[in-house]
Design a protein around this nucleic acid. Structure first.
Lengths: 262, 262
DNA sequence: GAGTGGTCTAGACCACTGT
DNA sequence: CAGTGGTCTAGACCACTCC
């Protein structure tokens, strides 16, 4: 026994994949679709919800249902880490010109709006273990939001953790009003004589929580990519842990792995 | 005006986050919840669907609704590429012992069931551009499915493309019955004198298509990670393009970037 | 067979959008 | 204001699971 809402969804999905309906096209109203398929409105809504969850359509209250346009804007390249390291010892003027974010997006500093908040917290179990410190050790938690000047939602949620004691020798690093810091975290660590040796990034993906969907202005039918970046210095200490939440429909991550020559 | 189904969803979501309801717990039946909240059954179903999309609960027909257990099984590490390169020149006995998949998952060859299909296709626009060949050039398309012996669904969908002319010198490479090939693609290329220099991996995430959900046996409320791997040889030619679809709830990707010393 | 979730209806009323 | 999607009801019947 074929399920009515799946049949309707299959039919519309096919029309989108085949190109009969193009990105940006408006679908008939739910009432019209109900009549066309000889079903009730809730059944049609059921079908449309399925397609919405798959990311194929956008429903807009009061306006209609539209075929979604695919999009990917920012590319985040792991070459950024070497790039940032090279900049860490450059003169301030050079560092202030362009940051990693502009390096990623190809935009200029003026196109972006930056926000940072610092807070001190006591290390919970998990972070204490990663940093190799006792539970309760003071950490500096730094929260960042960056968005396009033209848009209202940030394009990533970033939280970074540092061990307070490790960086306290430079009081400027505890002061959120010094952000955005020219040259980024690697330059900040450089002022303390810390050299970053390697960066580990762990990735997973899942549907957004309601809070994430709201903060990143994500439509239904999108995923978030969770990135956990751990920086090690040349003495193999963990010097920074950063958690990043990225919108799956607007982000591409690029990792290049160079191999040793034979 | 608060929406009833959101209030119900918020209430249950809170109970899960706070730990009042633990992973594996069964929720009351929809009828019971409807009575408890003084709402109709469809409204309760609406709330539960929301939580299901978020990946918090699992609905199982005829059995009940359960708090989902988080899981991550396989870790895919970009160290795998150097590891595979080192093996590419090893004796066959060594190569046959362990493949990259076992390297990733920590399992033994016996725990896995392997499947491969080869097919020749004419290069479409996009692949032709990547390989730097004319549209219509013959490519070898290799489709792989690997699954745990104990489970029915594979844990990834893999499709690899090679330029037929580039590999035809070794007829064994055109024969799917030679799979699984000890030492993997890098050893296959090595038999032709091709040395892989670097690997580029591009990642995005999105909800699964119905086909992907079925093939990977994905429950509602999960995402897929799409990985597109491009291998370059030491002459900077593209020698392999591989598309991988991974279940977001069972996979963690790990990338390590080493930086040059000062 | 009892209990669970899955599908569907017919219709009401609300909320948002654009004219 | 007309048209659109959003929410909700009360109840029917089906399909799956387990005892």
């Amino acid at each position: 026994m074929p399920k009515a809402y799946e049949e309707i969804a299959d039919d519309i999905r096919r029309s989108i994949r085949e190109g009969t309906r193009k990105p940006g096209d408006r679908l008939p109203s739910e009432a019209d679709l109900a009549q066309h398929y000889g079903r009730s409105v809730p059944t049609v809504q059921n079908a449309l919800r399925l397609l919405s969850e798959e990311g194929l359509i956008d429903k807009r209250h009061g306006r209609g249902t539209f075929v979604r346009r695919p999009r990917t804007l920012a590319v985040r390249d792991n070459g950024r880490h070497q790039w940032e390291k090279n900049r860490a010892r450059a003169p301030e003027a050079t560092r202030a010109e362009t940051g990693v974010t502009e390096h990623d997006t190809g935009l200029r500093v003026d196109d972006l709006v930056f926000y940072a908040r610092y807070r001190e917290i006591e290390a919970p179990d998990e972070l204490a273990a990663v940093f190799g410190v006792r539970v309760g050790t003071l950490l500096l938690e730094r929260t960042y939001r960056t968005r396009y000047a033209a848009e209202s939602a940030p394009f990533s949620l970033v939280t970074s953790y540092l061990v307070r004691e490790m960086i306290a020798a430079n009081p400027d690093l505890l002061d959120e009003t010094k952000e955005p810091w020219p040259g980024g975290t690697q330059n900040q660590l450089h002022t303390l004589g810390i050299e970053v040796d390697r960066v580990e990034e762990r990735l997973t993906a899942r549907p957004p929580t309601p809070e994430e969907a709201k903060a990143l202005d994500l439509p239904a039918g999108t995923s978030v990519i969770l990135l956990r970046k751990t920086s090690y210095d040349i003495r193999d200490r963990v010097v920074d842990v950063t958690l990043v939440t990225l919108p799956g429909d607007r982000t591409e991550l690029l990792f290049t792995t160079s191999l040793e020559r034979w």
